[in-house]
Write a protein that binds this DNA or RNA. Structure first.
Lengths: 238, 238
DNA sequence: GCAGCAAATTTGCTATAGCAGACTGCATGA
DNA sequence: TCATGCAGTCTGCTATAGCAAATTTGCTGC
């Protein structure tokens, strides 16, 4: 056996494609919250028959992105601002658990990669801070680099946690809590908000806790950090 | 409009029935973890066609109770002991969040009902303790009453939290963390374990925190309590 | 015995047809 | 003007047929 087969890189079934397409459409707002939908309508829009669309809808229903209004009618789920911010708290709690697991399991290679991501973010972040201090406009390319580095950081912590149930739960709740966060936070940064930049150093502390295998502290830091992100958006005190 | 229509008391679609039946079969062990399954086989067993079974399988796959092994083969998911205990920690964390939400939102009526449930549990529980102290065999009927009362207590806290995303996440993770807990704990009680009975008074403290709208303390108590339940089973320190 | 290959069977996936119930709009009558 | 019935249409649900690919089976040759 010279090679190992990758675990289905692209399932490519129409039902799977329909699921991804509809999920993305909902999260990105192409299918607005509360929109009435029909199997046949979606099937025609996607160019497939009703069968794979039905399976996609059942999966979306399972994660509450689609809901039944009556015995024979469907719509994209509605999500109140309160539900959105509460989802942020749920997400923060789960990210805390992820950090706890990661503190137990992260390999040396993963920890090093985490450190390199923070170095990248710092390089671009310090430049941004300097630009802001002299009143220049923020370089969108550097903003992007900071965000992708920090997103990769969180994703890698989640991967190090190595628990598929936790990962699934996070994916599902993020569809509600995080659908517009990136755009908002970028806007806040441009407007001069200091919260995101202040929370910056917390990543270093979290990494130190992970290295020390200090699950309690890692969870505490990750959760507080994530909850602060929600608070910035909602003006809440957590 | 003199009355309001109840929201679909029994959906009664075959796909829904198939979903519930298969889910129960998996959790109760009638379909063992790792069992290979086929659409047609399950459909024949349930007496329906393959279509509703496929939809049920997609939903079960979404919550990781069923998984693909290859492009054309399915099986009931496998769950390691580690994954099971980790699910217990995830559940404990989510129950903590539920208690936090409940502390903000619980109505006076709900709080009173919670108190009555604890009174019920205490009545039966004290009798059990007395029986155990004199070495008599535990009355199975009273054991049942304690468990149902405490289960109702947790369910009502969850209902008071009033967040469907949280409720769904709890349901899904419990399929893994709690599938055999009741039986085990009953067995432990019969064998004289003291942990469950010692954790008993914690419910009163939680209720007090809910009444005081003390979200921090409610979360702390609920989470510790739930995590202790996991620790009892796994011999872990949380 | 056993590895390798090909035929036969199994299996998941998709499209389609049709049913039963819900919904819509319009005409009717008070 | 408004409630009420009644087609006609729409919609979700289920069963079925068939395809393409994977899996299994059994044969062959070493």
């Amino acid at each position: 056996m010279g090679h190992m087969t990758l675990p289905a890189l692209s399932s490519q079934t129409l039902a799977d494609q329909a699921y991804r397409a509809l999920r993305a459409a909902i999260i990105q707002g192409d299918l607005p919250w509360g929109e009435k939908i029909t199997e046949r309508g979606l099937a025609a829009g996607l160019g497939v028959s009703a069968t794979p669309v039905r399976e996609a809808l059942r999966r979306l229903e399972q994660e509450q992105l689609v809901e039944h209004t009556g015995p024979r009618s469907l719509r994209v789920a509605t999500v109140s601002p309160q539900a959105r911010s509460e989802s942020g708290l749920i997400e923060a709690s789960l990210e805390g658990v992820a950090a706890r697991f990661a503190a137990q399991k992260a390999t040396a290679k993963q920890l090093d990669r985490l450190e390199r991501l923070l170095d990248d973010a710092d390089a671009a972040g310090l430049a941004l801070r300097a630009e802001r201090d002299v009143g220049r406009q923020l370089n969108p390319d550097k903003v992007e680099r900071v965000f992708t580095a920090l997103r990769d950081f969180h994703d890698l912590v989640e991967a190090a946690a190595d628990n598929s149930h936790l990962a699934r739960a996070l994916d599902q709740v993020r569809a509600f809590s995080r659908s517009e966060r990136l755009e908002i936070t970028v806007a806040q940064l441009a407007a001069g908000a200091s919260g995101p930049i202040q929370r910056y150093g917390q990543h270093r502390e979290l990494l130190a806790a992970l290295r020390a295998h200090d699950g309690d502290r890692a969870e505490q830091l990750a959760r507080t950090h994530a909850a602060a992100g929600v608070a910035d958006l909602a003006g809440w005190d957590v």
